[in-house]
Simulated assay, not measured.
Amino acid sequence: MPDWLEITLRTLLSVVALFLITKLLGKRQISQLSFFEYITGITIGSLAAYTSLDMEDKWYLGLVALGVWGAVSFGIEFLQIKSKKARNFIDSRGTVLIKEGKVLEDNLKKERISTDELLEKIRGKNAFKVADVEFAVMEPSGDVNVLLTRENLPLTPKHLGIKVGPEQEPQTVIMDGKIMDEPLATIGLNRNWLNCELDKIGVTVENVFLGQVDSYQQLYVDLYDDQIKVPAPKVKATLYASLKKCEADLELFGLATQDEEAKKMYEQCVKELQSILADVKPLLHH
């Protein structure tokens, strides 16, 4: 067999082996790496390259080494899942860098982080002053997480006492001008519904770069032509307005009638509708 063909086949075999091992080890191998995962990644990559280029007869031993490294890494990950002590020993623990707005210089030296690097990392968490940071910790992965002081935390509806409706994962139903049937079926819709919604806003599916449906079955589209403005969905606003109109009509009927029994009935209906409106307002208001 010619050398170029043999190297080609070995390289393809190494790629397949490397892919299978990485697939077995899971997504942690391609995310933030621990000490051991860092060593494993470098070694497995080097072994794969060596196996594809080694011209000796026993090149297949490189695949054996790949398998051993993969098995050891898998065993280490399994041990980390089962044992807190093993996680602390292999990955080490998080290191506190800032506490109550004060930088812990000894911990910075321990992790070999300069002041500039610390400031860069907290700026990445939208903290531009050390005094605004209540707590900052360096995780075993090397990432720095920051807890801002209470007065610097962003406001949320909960802080303001506002109740909001639940939000579920939006489904992408159009991508690159093509309808995605599986996401549509996931939310109990079909192509007929989607085509009707597209007709309402006056666009065709071929002109849609991306289309998503939220948990309230409202369609949001992004067109290839960014100059075309698409009206925002108004399903929730329209429904809320219709309920408010019903409330006003019932109040009007109650004022217009001379029948005391009918008046009481309308007043009771208004109270029940107001209770319903109070419940659905968080769901129908953005």
Rank of each mutant, 00 (worst) to 15 (best):
N190L: 03
N190V: 04
R191D: 11
R191Q: 15
N192G: 05
W193R: 03
E197N: 04
L198G: 03
L198A: 03
L198V: 06
D199K: 13
I201T: 04
G202E: 03
G202H: 02
V203D: 06
T204D: 13
E206N: 06
E206D: 09
N207K: 10
N207A: 15
V208Y: 03
F209H: 05
L210Y: 07
Q212T: 13
V213T: 08
V213D: 02
D214I: 00
S215N: 13
Y216L: 14
Q218I: 07
Q218D: 09
Q218T: 12
Y220M: 12
Y220A: 04
Y220D: 03
V221E: 06
D222S: 09
D222F: 11
L223G: 02
L223K: 04
Y224F: 15
Y224G: 06
D226G: 02
D226E: 15
D226F: 07
Q227P: 00
Q227R: 13
Q227L: 15
K229H: 07
K229L: 14
K229P: 00
P231V: 03
P233W: 10
K234Y: 07
K234I: 13
K234A: 15
V235P: 02
V235E: 09
K236D: 13
A237M: 14
A237P: 07
T238L: 08
L239M: 10
Y240A: 09
Y240G: 00
A241E: 13
A241Y: 12
K244R: 15
K245E: 14
C246P: 01
E247S: 12
A248V: 11
A248P: 02
D249K: 10
L250N: 01
L250A: 05
E251Y: 07
E251L: 12
L252E: 13
L252K: 11
F253I: 06
G254T: 08
G254S: 04
G254Y: 06
G254C: 09
L255W: 08
L255G: 04
A256L: 15
Q258W: 06
E260Y: 06
E261G: 04
E261A: 15
